[in-house]
């Protein structure tokens, strides 16, 4: 009796078993790519480890955190949250219209491709780049930050909403249309209720993402806790910077927990009700 896999070897008759060829090929191609990239990016392990030690030494300057600055951090932290809190609903409303326009089952082809292209462009532009453009036009401050975050939200939510709408059962839309309803009524009575859970849970998730992004945008001129961090670093007040980092951690972690909780409520509600 031959071994259970013998027929595989017999069939190919090659040096390598057929089932191993693709994985091996993939391994070599990926390995080469990584090696070349590392070379180009000047990855040098002999510099990395001494650098790491120096880093640990520098880290000493950050401790202990400057607790006395906590009070001064609270308002900027609030600004960061508010930035996201204003930008997210704005982005959600915009995204909803982009989602409707970008859904194949509601929009004519020209509108759909226009909306999809715009959404794609928005997604391709990182928030920071949008912010830098806006800062050049509107000046430094939270306002361009709000706009940048709202536009960034459309890039993600617009696509998700459009996809969610396209996945709706065409027969249900047809059925609501069969009573003579207009397109806007179909949206109100079939599309909106059916995509609401996806809309809410994605929007809540985007709020969480926006809080993180708003910290980052703060550092490049939108104000808030990110700006405090950047300021402290520039002034070499490392203990103060550490405090800003701690507040940021708390903020992001808190946002994540709240977002998880809310999303679970939304999704469970959809299942149980």
């Amino acid at each position: 009796m031959s071994s259970p896999t013998a027929y595989l070897h017999r069939r190919t008759g090659a040096l390598l078993p057929r089932r191993l060829r693709k994985p091996l090929l993939a391994f070599f191609v990926l390995g080469t790519l990584i090696a070349v990239s590392a070379r180009l990016c000047k990855v040098d392990l002999s510099e990395f480890f001494p650098g790491l030690l120096k880093g640990v030494e520098v880290l000493r300057f950050f401790f202990p955190p400057d607790w006395s600055s906590l009070q001064e951090m609270l308002v900027p932290a609030l600004v960061t949250v508010l930035l996201a809190a204003v930008a997210t609903p704005l982005g959600v409303v915009l995204s909803f219209f982009f989602g409707l326009a970008g859904a194949r089952n509601l929009s004519p082809p020209w509108l759909r491709s226009t909306a999809r292209t715009l959404i794609g462009v928005e997604r391709a532009l990182p928030e920071i780049i949008v912010l830098l453009l806006l800062v050049a036009a509107l000046g430094v401050g939270p306002f361009p930050g709000v706009i940048a975050l709202a536009i960034g939200s459309v890039g993600m939510l617009g696509k998700l909403f459009a996809d969610a709408i396209e996945e709706l059962d065409a027969k249900v839309l047809e059925s609501v249309g069969s009573v003579g309803a207009t397109r806007s009524q179909i949206i109100r009575f079939a599309v909106l209720p059916e995509v609401m859970p996806a809309l809410l849970s994605n929007s809540i998730f985007r709020f969480e993402v926006n809080i993180r992004a708003s910290v980052l945008l703060g550092a490049v001129g939108a104000g808030g806790i990110g700006f405090e961090l950047q300021k402290a670093m520039a002034l070499l007040e490392y203990e103060r910077a550490m405090m800003a980092v701690l507040v940021t951690l708390l903020l992001v972690f808190g946002a994540e927990r709240v977002s998880d909780f809310l999303r679970r409520r939304v999704l469970d509600g959809g299942k149980l009700a």
Partner: peptide
């Protein structure tokens, strides 16, 4: 067409109701 459809009540095989309403 909408005026005509409002005068015809349709029942489908798959019910085709809006499930979340």
């Amino acid at each position: 067409q909408r005026e005509a459809r409002r005068r015809m009540g349709v029942i489908f095989q798959g019910f085709n109701l809006v499930k979340r309403l």
